[in-house]
Design a protein around this nucleic acid. Sequence first.
DNA 1: AATGAATGAGTTTTCATTCAT
DNA 2: TATGAATGAAAACTCATTCAT
Lengths: 205, 205, 205, 205
Amino acid sequence: MTDRSTGQEDKRRLILDAAVHVFAQKGYHTSRVGDIAEEAGVAHGLLYHYFRSKEELLETIFRETWRDVLDAVRSVEESDESARDRLAGIAKILLRAWRRDPDLVRVLVREVTRSSHLQQRIDEIEAAFAGIERIIARGQEEGEFRSDLDPRMASYVFYGALEEILTGWVLGQLEDGVEAIARAEETVVEVICGGLAADRETAKV
Amino acid sequence: MTDRSTGQEDKRRLILDAAVHVFAQKGYHTSRVGDIAEEAGVAHGLLYHYFRSKEELLETIFRETWRDVLDAVRSVEESDESARDRLAGIAKILLRAWRRDPDLVRVLVREVTRSSHLQQRIDEIEAAFAGIERIIARGQEEGEFRSDLDPRMASYVFYGALEEILTGWVLGQLEDGVEAIARAEETVVEVICGGLAADRETAKV
Amino acid sequence: MTDRSTGQEDKRRLILDAAVHVFAQKGYHTSRVGDIAEEAGVAHGLLYHYFRSKEELLETIFRETWRDVLDAVRSVEESDESARDRLAGIAKILLRAWRRDPDLVRVLVREVTRSSHLQQRIDEIEAAFAGIERIIARGQEEGEFRSDLDPRMASYVFYGALEEILTGWVLGQLEDGVEAIARAEETVVEVICGGLAADRETAKV
Amino acid sequence: MTDRSTGQEDKRRLILDAAVHVFAQKGYHTSRVGDIAEEAGVAHGLLYHYFRSKEELLETIFRETWRDVLDAVRSVEESDESARDRLAGIAKILLRAWRRDPDLVRVLVREVTRSSHLQQRIDEIEAAFAGIERIIARGQEEGEFRSDLDPRMASYVFYGALEEILTGWVLGQLEDGVEAIARAEETVVEVICGGLAADRETAKV
DNA sequence: AATGAATGAGTTTTCATTCAT
DNA sequence: TATGAATGAAAACTCATTCAT
């Protein structure tokens, strides 16, 4: 994800970072535009110089973040790895974001459903899902994954597992820390890839 | 979940149903008390006769519904089945609720599970998670599930998979319908339970 | 015109009267909604209970007033008088409004053009114009007025004369007072009806 | 009126023309400084290099234009014509200006003549009225016009007739076009001068 | 129990104007 | 001259909640 920590960049970035911070603390609806401006150290009017509205601010955060996620997913997709390693790579990207930028993850997790009631979920999110689905489908074609399961449904299972763990961290319900993150990665990959593995197929019968 | 369809109930029920409907369409924050009253066909003042505030309305919906979910989870837990069948039972309960009352599921998924304003909510959700966790842990103890994975983490994987599929339906991005629901149940159970199965354990090494 | 002075009527009337007063002092754009509420002695929120917006307030003032004017024009139209007396009657109605309710005339005169840039001038105004035009046309048919002039254009000349005199009073440029009002009536009727009189027709050649 | 069409002029002229255009479309209060700058193709900051404020812009338009009107009225006043021809000359000037520069007339009629914020404006408009009044008074002295009517009041009748017709064109409610303009001139002159004519005087009695 | 008029705190947004570059 | 980023006062409007009836 884009580096959001320097604060030396332009005002637009400053405002965006402030918004992430404020939204993370109070939630989108409870945050006031003035809070964001104050956090950014600018007059609130300036905010409207860069963004059309408070809502566009949230949308921009979503879009920019998911663009980065999408890029990461794509580079994983293009790598020369097994399907399992590819999914592991994606799990790593998403779960480690929590360490890198908790506020951002907080906003993303708490407001996902918010952002999507106007937008049918942002295009970028859809594209990332499609990438996961492709990885699974290719794993099936190449015999690594069992092919009797719907790859689209499976991509929801995989992504849902990751998001729920992030949510657990955000809400403070799931143990946090470097070690826990590693364990989360392992669990997700073991469970999902284990369940998807080709030698499972017969087990079903 | 509680029957909400007879129309014979009192005004309180009427208001509660209207709230579910309105929250489902517009989200909690964007819904106005007046909308709910209009939907219920009563004056908005009456709402304050039965509920202390708009928030109490959401809380009530959550509590009444979640109690049903909890009951269902518990009855599954107490049943005399394999761990796999128990998880399948829970998946069935949650996914089929979608058909029965999409609005209610929408509100639960979009508003309640994510947002953290009320600590109490979190506690009750925790109880459901704990039930799932116990089922998994018992599966491990009884040798049905591999025991090298964290059951708590695994319960998040399982619940997250279900919730993401519900979200896909809520947002209209995942194919809907009776057959798709069956496929969803199968996929979740196959993947998660397959990945959790005891014979996976060695595969890891 | 509707009696606006009792203040014992409903709140809606109270707000409308306050709006006339405030708009008359400061002009529509310069008046704040809060001023109107304060003048009416109600919370500003109540204003939005009765009117959709500040603009609707102005529009209502226009519409209600012109409805009254229209009624007056119609009763003149139906009277059994000469065309000249009918026009004199209309002049009397409009010019004496200045004495009866200066604030209302002030608002009407100062904001006419304002009100009409969204609305193509309110329907009621158009109808009143049409009434004047019909009176002139009938005067032509019955031989009282020369028939070589466009009655529509003539109605604009007549109404414009009246409005300009009202404007002169509003802006304080034209001598005011009971006697001046009588003089104004006389001048308008003498000039316009004199110019429209049938024996003028030949004079033109 | 000043030529506003060459496009060779300086930025100041450009801004002034843009302001006339924008004020004509949206009205003074509803026009934003940014709109004017955009229409002129300059940064909005530049506007403050040439004018102290948005209001000064309107004032400048008014003053520059009205000076032309005043000059025209004066040259008519000094001409060696009958009073009737003089009034016809003034009607011609004002009504034909509409064809030459509708936007400018629109602004003059809609914004300037009515609203009273600037006392100075009123004074200058007064001068034009005074010119018309003098023409009428002289017509009375020289026996061309009946002398029993108040020349000041009559000047309002005359000017009001012209302004109302302009307004009718501005609002698109009165038929427009070269021929209609000629008809308007004729109607105004015939009616007003006919009504003012000396041989009317006895008719009154 | 039921209504809906009344309240007023709270918030987003607009936009004229300034000023560093 | 020219730009457009930056400011912040100002205002309309919303809506949860209260309460007289």
